[in-house]
Design a protein around this nucleic acid. Structure first.
Length: 545
DNA sequence: ATCGTTCGCCAC
DNA sequence: AAACGTGGCGAACGAT
């Protein structure tokens, strides 16, 4: 069964039982305490909740101690359906979808809520969950029911309805997982982080300026370039300083500097690395984002055009490797860290149906298999060629390798080439499950933008399908560990962290492998391609793999 | 002073 | 080796 709900903005909400076809299946009612009502119905019936926005509704439910198993997220589904018919980016909220349905002017979506406030401020339940406007009332419940029925009808009309329904289910389940992950937060040891900063950066400045090690490097770089007042964090100043010593630089990017023979270069490279840590993950970041031993970021499922997650606040998906030393499990607990290796080329093998590439994808090391097939055993060359084909590389010494790839894996090659051609002509491409790339307002006007568009669509078909596999794994894993004492605490494109008591880790490891296998079967059915997971059980994230 | 853009690094 | 896909973010930059 299903239950449609719309919050009333003051802690309650309207609820409507729905049949399996989405039609009203009984009288609707108003609950003064929406969280309480959801908890009770969830315990009794475990329905699929049909609601306007998981991002708006689920966090306050979680704060009230309520979890749900399944939902249908109207706004995420609406975005997928709009994209499918070439209307990517149009307002996707319930109010917009309802307005489109009856031909009323379509209101814009409300701007996204600010990133989760630091600290433990709870706020009133549902104070931010008011989905469309302050006049939300029982009419919104009627709109919800009508929009849901309409979405079901549109889902039935796509070319591959079974796949698209899986996409919608996975997207909605991802949103639940994202809410729970944001709610749990990533275990984070402030003391370890602080010690790490001191080791890397030296004493913090008592007046708020750069820490000691950065100050020393600044002085050394200035001396090496003959300018005591040089600011190494300023690209313009660094370029000018090199010009004065007879070296012209197109930019101060690290890879450019690495090609320069000058005593200031190693100092600058070290400065850049440490400066980045200081500004992006230093003491200020620590004080803003770590509270009560957790890093609580806000995750945004489908926040990336390809369907990958994005995050708001704290750079949750860009935690530098050295900083992961501070990610430590609670006493007596561990992390089960699972990482899908070589995911994107395996996805290409499964999607394209290229028999020879699929055979390579059946191996534990796809690149090694490619190397044996087509690159005289040169694994590095095979990897560069594969990445070049998926990203649209056109230059450099990957070109001969790309030719070998084309010759040995013509079916896979043609799939990404066709995707690129479609993009160059201003067209849209789709992922395996039907996520559709946005199209530019007008076709590319010149060769450079056409090629850029081609690289985007070329990569989209692989990256978006990889995201679907990973989201499906996550959603499946979430279900498998539902009754365990375990929490999902991190998910980064092809990697997932489960925090659990040490004694339960073996069960979680089993569940992770099972989830990967189910994701493979759900998406691709019979395929020789494997999606092996590197799984480790560790107390510290930095020790994974 | 303020705001939008660019640079450059982090992650995958 | 070379600079090719998706992002977030913070500081510098530069226009207003």
């Amino acid at each position: 069964m299903m239950v449609g709900i719309v919050p009333d903005g003051v802690g309650g909400g309207w609820c409507a039982p729905l049949s399996d076809t989405g039609r009203p299946a009984g009288a609707s009612w108003h609950a003064a305490d929406l969280a309480g009502a959801v908890a009770e119905v969830e315990r009794r019936d475990r329905p699929r909740w049909v609601w306007p926005s998981t991002a708006a509704i689920y966090p306050p439910l979680l704060r009230a101690g309520v979890r749900v198993e399944r939902c249908h997220d109207i706004e995420l589904t609406e975005a997928l359906l709009l994209g499918y018919v070439g209307r990517w980016g149009e307002p996707r909220g319930l109010a917009a979808a309802a307005a489109r349905l009856v031909g009323r002017p379509v209101p814009p979506d409300l701007p996204a809520r600010q990133a989760a406030p630091p600290g433990d401020a709870q706020g009133a339940l549902f104070e931010t969950a008011l989905v469309e406007d302050s006049a939300a009332d029982s009419a919104s419940l009627q709109e919800l029911i009508e929009v849901y029925a309409d979405q079901r009808a549109r889902l039935a009309e796509v070319a591959e309805p079974g796949r698209f329904r899986l996409l919608v289910a996975t997207e909605s389940a991802s949103a639940l997982a994202a809410g729970e992950m944001g709610h749990h937060g990533l275990p984070w040891r402030v003391d370890v982080h602080t010690e790490l900063l001191r080791d890397l950066l030296g004493e913090p400045s008592p007046v708020g300026g750069p820490p000691r090690r950065l100050a020393e490097l600044t002085a050394a770089i200035g001396a090496a370039l003959g300018d005591e007042r040089l600011h190494p964090e300023s690209p313009a100043e660094v370029v000018r300083a090199f010009t004065r010593v007879g070296i012209s630089l197109p930019s101060t990017r690290a890879w450019v500097l690495r090609g320069i023979d000058h005593p200031a270069v190693p100092l600058l490279l070290e400065f850049k690395e440490l400066y980045r840590i200081w500004t992006a993950h230093g003491w200020a970041w620590r004080d803003q984002w770590i509270h009560n031993g957790r890093f609580r970021a806000e995750y945004v499922p489908a926040g990336v055009v390809s369907g990958r997650w994005a995050s708001r606040g704290g750079g949750a998906l860009q935690i530098p490797r050295v900083i992961r030393r501070a990610v430590v499990a609670d006493p007596g607990w561990v992390f089960v860290v699972a990482d899908a290796g070589q995911l994107e080329p395996r996805i290409l093998a499964a999607v394209s149906g290229d028999e020879r590439l699929a055979a390579a994808g059946a191996s534990g090391d796809l690149y090694a298999a490619l190397a044996t097939d087509a690159f005289d055993g040169d694994r590095a060359k095979a990897k560069v060629a594969m990445l070049g084909a998926m990203y649209g590389q056109t230059g450099g010494n990957a070109i001969p390798a790309l030719a070998a790839l084309r010759q040995f894996y013509p079916v896979a090659w043609e799939l990404v080439e066709q995707a690129a051609r479609t993009g160059e002509e201003g067209g849209a491409v789709r992922s395996w499950l039907g996520r559709t790339s946005p199209v530019p307002r007008e076709p590319p006007q010149d060769g450079a933008s056409a090629r850029a568009r081609g690289r985007f669509t070329r990569n989209f078909v692989v990256q978006a399908t990889a995201a679907e596999w990973a989201n499906t794994l996550l959603a499946t894993l979430r279900g498998l560990i539902r009754d365990y004492e375990a929490e999902l605490v991190f998910f980064q494109h092809d990697e997932v962290l489960v925090h659990c008591p040490a004694g339960g880790a073996d069960d979680v490891v089993t569940a992770v492998h099972e989830a990967g296998e189910r994701a493979r079967a759900l998406l691709f059915g019979e395929t020789p391609v494997r999606f092996p997971l590197g799984v480790s059980t560790v107390e510290c994230y930095a020790d994974a793999k």
